[in-house]
Design a binder for these strands. Structure first.
Lengths: 340, 340
DNA sequence: TCTGGCACTCGACTGTACCGAGTGCCAGTC
DNA sequence: GACTGGCACTCGGTACAGTCGAGTGCCAGA
């Protein structure tokens, strides 16, 4: 059963008013605030249909209507246009991001900026190691049986890890190791390193074999398996805006979810090129976040995607504005990374 | 005006009951649950005195008494003994901290452990750079005009920073730079490096002068001035325990304060050796945290302190238990660091 | 197909009454 | 002089009734 244009306009008006006022919206208020050109009674009939179709609902019998997750979805997909950013916002973005001195700095500035502009919780994934390649590997002797392994990726990420050698190792062996791993691994994508690392061990001289074996384990662990993804978070205080009406009264599940890196990665880490993903309420797979919506996108230098970023807020959020901001920030960050 | 032993016992009982039940405690309930050996009427008289002295107060005329910040202070200082940890807690600490592979890992495990054991918000400061010395400086050429500076501190911390050189630099000059900075700086405390860095520039050959100048700027910026301190946070979801009764109904100010690294550093960063600091409600200098208490202490290998850690919770918290846990965790972490 | 009118619903708010936990005070007792 | 039992009092919480009004659904008519 199709919804004619006016019914869609009514839905749009409901969403906009509800997002703005945070209160159920009734037929009378609607015709007053929007130029719908019909009477409240007509709007009521439309509303009845919209409710039947599951786009809106009544919190109480004698209350106005509130959009459902499904209603927001329709709104986002068909009824809204991405709001252009205000010049002030553009300026804010530029001002915020110039002067970043390194990757850590970029990520931190970005996440704070995003939280501030959208007034929601912002999440930024560090450039994914899986999508990076090795730029350089450094081995720094700490003692005769200990090395500090430092990996620098082309995305600017730097990871380090302590290597405990099985036996003391002379300085020139460290030099050899350093040369070997760099020769073999520099330039290759991290996701493709495991066979190369394996080969390194097999090809290494008997002298170097034990050290190389240990080193290879650490390399694989650090670079491929273990906490390879990192995340920055900001703006949790924004969860308390709108009293306790959002999130059905309890921040607890939200805060819990935000502490789980895995969950966050799932939310924003599966970015596809040039798409902005919007997950509304129930669409979310994480149970704790059924009351929230997530707007996320990928970012990276040029057209490539090296990581994801996004914001999380109540289902009652300003989708057009949020989407615009998330996209714009991602684009700026991409440009920033491209300069390196 | 002195408080006799019984009045102190009454105060202790009030604190304990209130912490346990979260409800104002009346005279009758008190005598029932504690062996005070006197009648409710007597307790009431004592309570009147305690209230006059500012140790407890009545939320409403017809309600029981609740400790004031001053009451908690007296309780912590004179009426409580540090609870010994349960064996289960000891085991949890040991289990949690073995297997940490590097500093990042140690810090993250620690902060989560602390949050879990105390059921409060946990904060752990990374080993302070100001209290570290330089173990090694590495310069990795990224391009002819770019170096990645990696500093490894004796505390295990690793900091990196991109250096944009004013002019292209040949590979052997990088080697020279590396040798020079290491010769000069390794082993010295970071807080003492500025004059050394200055000397480096002045003593460097004309060839190296420009590069060394830039490098020195970055060195000083990164190691001494800028975000030299880092912090890890966990357990924010615990703020929602106890409904919204704690923190006078709004988590907002707390969450805001927790997002400010500077604030957190102030809270837990000013650790003195072997002291556990307890800040109760109003004693806190941060306005946003007037409704919270902070228990913090320093940690480090052996007797030296390299950083602080602690927890933040409602003034109504189990001080003896929390203090014990914070101390124990700090001690374990110190031992862990001593092994490196 | 839309509109105006009308009866109806029900949440929010107000005022009243009541209950009971808890207090302060006081006279009496050890 | 310190403690106790008794008693009047306070006041938050809850239950209940009544009112108000925003908002609805439905229907007859344009």
């Amino acid at each position: 059963m199709g919804l004619d244009d006016r019914k869609l306009a009514v839905l749009r008006a409901i969403v906009e008013d509800y997002v703005a006022t945070q209160e159920p919206v009734g037929s009378k208020a609607l015709v007053e605030r929007h130029q719908l050109g019909v009477s409240p009674a007509t709007v009521r009939n439309d509303m009845a249909v919209l409710e039947e179709e599951g786009y809106i609902r009544q919190p109480h019998t004698s209350a106005g209507r509130v959009p459902t997750d499904r209603g927001y979805r329709l709104f986002v997909d068909r009824l809204s246009r991405v709001k252009p950013l205000s010049p002030a916002e553009r300026r804010a973005i530029e001002r915020f991001l110039v002067g970043a001195v390194d990757l850590d700095d970029v990520v931190h500035r970005t996440v704070r900026l995003l939280a501030q502009l959208t007034r929601q919780v912002a999440v930024v994934q560090y450039p994914s190691l899986a999508r990076s390649s090795v730029r350089h590997l450094e081995l720094v002797p700490i003692s005769t049986t200990r090395l500090m392994l430092v990996m620098i990726a082309d995305t600017g990420r730097v990871e380090q890890r302590l290597v405990e050698l099985p036996a003391p190792i002379p300085a020139d062996h460290v030099t050899d190791l350093r040369r070997l791993v760099n020769e073999k691994l520099v330039g290759s994508r991290l996701s493709e390193t495991p066979p190369l690392v394996q080969a390194l061990v097999e090809e290494s001289s008997p002298q170097l074999r034990p050290a190389m074996t240990t080193l290879s384990t650490v390399l694989l662990e650090t670079l491929v398996e273990r906490h390879e993804e990192r995340i920055a978070l900001a703006g949790t205080a924004n969860l308390t805006r709108g009293g306790l009406l959002d999130f059905q009264g309890s921040l607890r599940p939200i805060l819990e979810a935000l502490e789980e890196e895995v969950v966050l990665l799932k939310l924003i880490g599966e970015a596809e090129p040039s798409t902005t993903r919007v997950l509304i309420g129930d669409e979310n797979e994480v149970d704790n976040l059924r009351a929230a919506s997530v707007v996320s996108t990928g970012y990276g230098p040029g057209a490539t995607i090296v990581g994801g970023l996004g914001v999380l807020g109540p289902t009652r959020m300003d989708y057009p504005g949020t989407i615009a901001t998330v996209r714009a920030v991602a684009r700026y960050v991409g440009e920033l990374l491209a300069q390196n």
